[in-house]
Design a protein around this nucleic acid. Sequence first.
DNA 1: TTGATCCAATTGTCAGACAATTAAATGTTT
DNA 2: AAACATTTAATTGTCTGACAATTGGATCAA
Lengths: 265, 265
Amino acid sequence: MGVKTSLNSKGELSAQIAEAIRAAIISGALPFEHRLPSEAELSDQFNVSRPTVREALKRLAAQNLIRTLRGATGGAFVNRLSFEEAYAQQITTSTLLLSMNDVSFETACEARYALERACLKLSATRRLPDHLATMRAEIHRQGQPGLSDESFCNSDVAFHRALVDGAGNPVLSYQLAGAVEAMQPLMNMITFTARSREKIICFHTDIADAIEGGDAKKANTALNALAEYTIALAHNVSDRHRQNQSGVDSDQSEITRSSSTEPTE
Amino acid sequence: MGVKTSLNSKGELSAQIAEAIRAAIISGALPFEHRLPSEAELSDQFNVSRPTVREALKRLAAQNLIRTLRGATGGAFVNRLSFEEAYAQQITTSTLLLSMNDVSFETACEARYALERACLKLSATRRLPDHLATMRAEIHRQGQPGLSDESFCNSDVAFHRALVDGAGNPVLSYQLAGAVEAMQPLMNMITFTARSREKIICFHTDIADAIEGGDAKKANTALNALAEYTIALAHNVSDRHRQNQSGVDSDQSEITRSSSTEPTE
DNA sequence: TTGATCCAATTGTCAGACAATTAAATGTTT
DNA sequence: AAACATTTAATTGTCTGACAATTGGATCAA
């Protein structure tokens, strides 16, 4: 029996090994919770050293494909990708993509509201009392005086999450999580005046009312109004931004310290 | 100047280091194409060994956050996440999620068509001749006799990709790529009869006609019809499937060989 | 100036060791 | 026999030091 697996392709060994194992997982040859051979056995099978195997396993761990446990019964186990993990991955990827490709606020906004619009009909018929309660609660929170911009944006995200989750389709929620959450940094750029908050809350209330009444059409109208208003707000901000902006080129080259760091020596 | 960075938090060092660097990248402290310190310098800064640093870097590489190059001017460079890479990541994550959480065909289908519906309006007004041409070409291809099920599904995906891309919003395309592509394995399970293909082509034609005429409403109607029909088809298949299915439990424990492998000794 | 050669920096890989962790096996006491 | 403490073995996590492979630039010669 061919226990040894040769790798002919080119490139780094750890990448090849990671790819081989990933393919095995995706194909279903390695079922969930299945324990991979130990690092020592793998390095034997692939005829490489243990550090190389470890680099391969770390690659897979970074993609949530496996978890590793220490100890006598430890090892690397095929991870069942949960919706939670998928959400998180989706969000980080979306956030990075947006921040790295200077997507215009208009484009991102358009995408976000277009996607949300897709949920309205389902949400209007299926939303549970929970979702509605969350929406109402967030609206209330948004009306609190003295709420920071960041908190307001967080609440905004929570409101829309509830709206999306109301559709009762986890796949839909997963797909939209990235769109909604990834917008947050961009949203945070907008300094909401009291007046604009008031209007936004008004739109939110309209949406919640429509969802409560099962009126998808009315919800759609309200969401459209919110979308238009948001984009208009952003337009103002970006105009002001353009005026203030000069060629600022930060030249930091040190890695930012993690929260728990201290200079040594 | 504190060159050394201490890591107080718990867990594996390589994970902590990866997280610190990832945070620095996401925060923008490390701009694109910026070269990270060499592995030796990093192991100095974080006060760990080089293998540990390497594991951290491999984790980041697996997430497309950095690339590494060998040689005198080599090193690890902050990678600008392209839409292409983001697509690919999005698709693999979505595919895994669906295959690992036995999402019902109905749920996935509903999500997919709901998302697509979000693009119709934009696509009807913005689509370029290219998109329309692709849609027409794929429709034609779908009508070819003797086309394999897999090719038909591929063409189906291409058709819908064109529809989505017609909206002219890369963020939207990115978000939907996962939904559409991840459905393919599920779609492949359905054996399309000549009769059902004919109907699907009919719906596709209706959609293309509507998009060409800029009639979002008509396109919406056609897409709804297609969605209903697809789900009905799937229902039949899953019913038949249920009858045939008994508890099959494969117990493979070997890692599938990569395409270029051979048993040794 | 051009071309070939050498050099230094850097990542990729290896080997072997030890630390840390964990569950199971073993032994001991009640 | 049951409950508890101890040992043990397996496994991952980390370190050290070394060498190979690669690659751009420097050096030097024609």
